[in-house]
């Protein structure tokens, strides 16, 4: 039994749900993200929020998987502040839907000033509604710098780090994220993020408290079964079943249960 706390099912086929259920997936959370192209107007996001809060939970339920979501305009589309503010104005209309956990995946992409402005407005919205936050950290060479700027912005808004998950951490960012009291996610994604081997190394070096794994499977070359594959890697090394369960079920359940909308049955 496991939870995949970051997966973009709108980009996956229904047989992926079937395979995830067969592998033991009981709950997922799906952050709003970039579709691979820029939406032309705020209405495009409104349609997407409808998909995340209505269509997708029904598709997941067919396989006994509890579907949850996070809403935002993602950092890749945040350079246009005017559009971002139009989308931000639409988000409160969806916050009462029963599968919404909070605001995400917000953060930075290229660490630009406009991205930071839009990030701070999302943080303010989450703070005013007492919502959980899921953070996307930048890719590759931009990750270390962006992770620092994001953590500073969240702390400066007075948000409790225990209600924020900083995702896509790797060897050079995990320690700082955990030391500042945030939760951290390791993403198992080909080429640009962690492998199951490196994620397991990071557990061995940094412990299992406030740390989880996810697939972030999306429209790119990615793997909706990445979490069970990492569980197998840990098992093959001889890690205890309770440790494997902690990082792939107990930890996500503990963090996500801070939202009254999270459920696993």
């Amino acid at each position: 039994m496991y939870i995949d706390p970051h997966v973009h099912m709108v980009s996956r086929t229904t047989d992926d749900y079937q395979r995830m259920a067969l592998a033991g997936c009981v709950a997922i959370t799906e952050p709003a993200f970039w579709a691979g192209y820029d939406r032309s107007c705020a209405q495009g996001f409104v349609d997407y929020f409808g998909q995340l809060t209505d269509s997708e939970p029904k598709r997941a339920a067919q396989f006994g998987i509890c579907h949850h979501t996070w809403l935002c305009i993602n950092p890749k589309e945040s350079e246009d502040i005017g559009l971002a503010r139009e989308v931000l104005a639409e988000i409160p209309k969806f916050l009462d839907r029963r599968n919404v956990l909070g605001i995400g995946e917000i953060g930075l992409n290229k660490n630009s000033r406009n991205e930071l402005v839009v990030l701070e407005e999302h943080i303010a919205l989450a703070k005013s509604r007492n919502l959980l936050i899921l953070v996307h950290t930048p890719h590759l060479e931009d990750k270390m710098k962006g992770t620092r700027i994001i953590m500073d912005a969240i702390v400066s808004h007075g948000v409790d780090p225990g209600r924020v998950l900083i995702d896509h951490v790797e060897e050079h960012t995990v320690r700082a994220v955990l030391d500042r009291g945030f939760w951290a996610g390791m993403t198992l994604y080909p080429d640009t993020k962690c492998t199951p081997q490196r994620a397991t190394d990071i557990f061995e070096m940094h412990g299992t408290d406030r740390l989880w794994i996810n697939s972030a499977a999306d429209w790119g070359i990615s793997d909706p079964l990445a979490v069970p594959k990492c569980r197998e890697e840990m098992r093959a090394r001889g890690h205890l079943e309770q440790t494997i369960r902690k990082v792939s079920f107990d930890n996500p359940k503990q963090f996500l249960s801070q939202s009254p909308n999270f459920r696993v049955v």
Binding site: W34, E79, K110, N111, R113, E115, L140, K145, H172
Partner: peptide
């Protein structure tokens, strides 16, 4: 990873691209 990372601290003026190349 640190060797390949941008070590500057201030936000850039604007994002001219969405992508990252993997090193600086």
């Amino acid at each position: 990873l640190e060797l390949w990372s941008d070590h500057s601290v201030d936000p850039i003026a604007s994002a001219h691209t969405k992508g990252a190349i993997g090193a600086v």
